[in-house]
Design a protein around this nucleic acid. Sequence first.
RNA 1: GGCCCCGUCGUCUAGUGGUUAGGACACCAGGUUUUCAACCUGAUAACGGGAGUUCGAUUCUCCUCGGGGCUACCA
Length: 508
Amino acid sequence: MSDEKLELSAPDRPRVRLAPSPTGPLHIGTARTALFNYLFARQSRGTFVLRIEDTDHERSKKKWEKDILKYLAWLGLDWDEGPDKGGSFAPYRQSERVDIYTPYIKQLLDQGQAYYCFCTKDELAAQKEYQASIGEPPRYIGRCRNIDPKEAQARLKRGESAVIRLKVSSDKVISFQDQICGQTDFNSSELGDFIIAKNLKEPLYNLAVVVDDYLMKITHVIRGADHISNTPKQILIAEALGLPQPQYAHLPLVLSPNRRKLSKREEVVAVSDYYQQGYLPQALVNFMILLGWNEGTDREIYSMDELVEKFSLDKVQRSGGIFDLKRLNWMNGYYIRQESLPVLTQMCIPYLIKSGHLEEIPNGSKKYRIKETKEIVSLGYLGKVIGLYQERLKVLSEIPELVDYFFKKEVKYQPTLLIWKDKDKKEIKNALNRAIKALSGLKRDWTLEKINEALLGAADEIGDRGTLLWPVRAALTGKENSASPFDVAYVLGPEKTIRRLERAAKLL
RNA sequence: GGCCCCGUCGUCUAGUGGUUAGGACACCAGGUUUUCAACCUGAUAACGGGAGUUCGAUUCUCCUCGGGGCUACCA
């Protein structure tokens, strides 16, 4: 135990971080970034740090932080250091680190690498508009750049509002080797003197990130490609501060079917929503990793352990990928089919309770009550019900609708549902009566095998099996599509089965 | 507009200086002792375009076109 800790914090092992802003529920894109970081850390036996970037007080909310932690954990992406776990570099919430940044900002100011800017927002906006009109990149022209620091202090004392900008020398090429995108170059002229802090106590994102990554000894910054244009700014800040630079790896973006960045309005982006709809974490993980990474083979299915073993940054795709819900659904179905029935049953029960089909029995027994009929059912029974649909399920939340006929006194349907193809009522009624007769003899011997035998025997006497099997199934389930009549009859039991068949025969 | 990134079936992708350009999802057809699902089989389907290098380019180079990202006193 202690050995392992020591090893994890060994200086030569990579340290990566996920730095989400708690301004909304855990986003599927953030979860994917987390997954890449997690795999990289686990594979290299490094450390995965979770740092909450909540310096934007207006938009950051505690409940979102909770949501982020909860669903990262649910996906199995556990972190080694974080706000809830602590660690050698605590605190892990930027809002609790505000004092840490002050000396760094001061240092830049004292060294003349940063300065106070008194330009108003209106002035800046006008300038930007002008620059856009003549086709120049919008950047600060440096009006306050040469204000004497003493004068700046005096103006500050007088109560003038100001921000702090970094002095960026023009025409300098900033380049870095991105682990995914390769060599990437920027010209400092496009950046201008950008703002690094509102004041000594309020650093802005780019500065806070650089300082935190340095202090937390982050070796690899693995993040979404939407951050690529922040990278030169962060490099400049690190250089000004004399800090070492981490390795960068920018992940391709996840796109909507319309090829845009995944949007909250058009798509389901909250991991919590996927959880609620009944997606399995394994499926989500497997799906997310394949969206942007491929081992170099045809393989599609990977467990987390296998991913930890096989993952590598150089096999990460460079182009963005579209989030294809159908593919996720297929994969979720696959993982549902892999699940053992008792486990699947446990996973489905909450959905049956939520839909009002089932009630928990307070004393904590392993039984449930069917709300409509007040019958008490066992886990074994529910397992049989759900087992009928294991291969049909795509998401868990589909289950109540699929199996509702097991939880109702009577099933409702249009009598025409009973009609198979072009048969007439008389034929169907006759078939139903034959089925009733065949099953009635079985009451004490209600096994799948016998039911099969009885029903098939009766059906064959008629000739076209569908003439009997279709109405039997429809009468039992009230549905156009369902599990097979044999299975349904077996699980339903003799009384209900025969009652439903008799009722159907009367409808015709 | 400026800067940056990207470009193989509808989608996720494999792949190579010479391949019948492979797989998976989706779609379609057939099979699978009633339906649906699952499963099996099969079909349709791609190297954005133009130059150049080369005996030969999907592959290398350039241009172009297209798509996306960023462009805050947000992160």
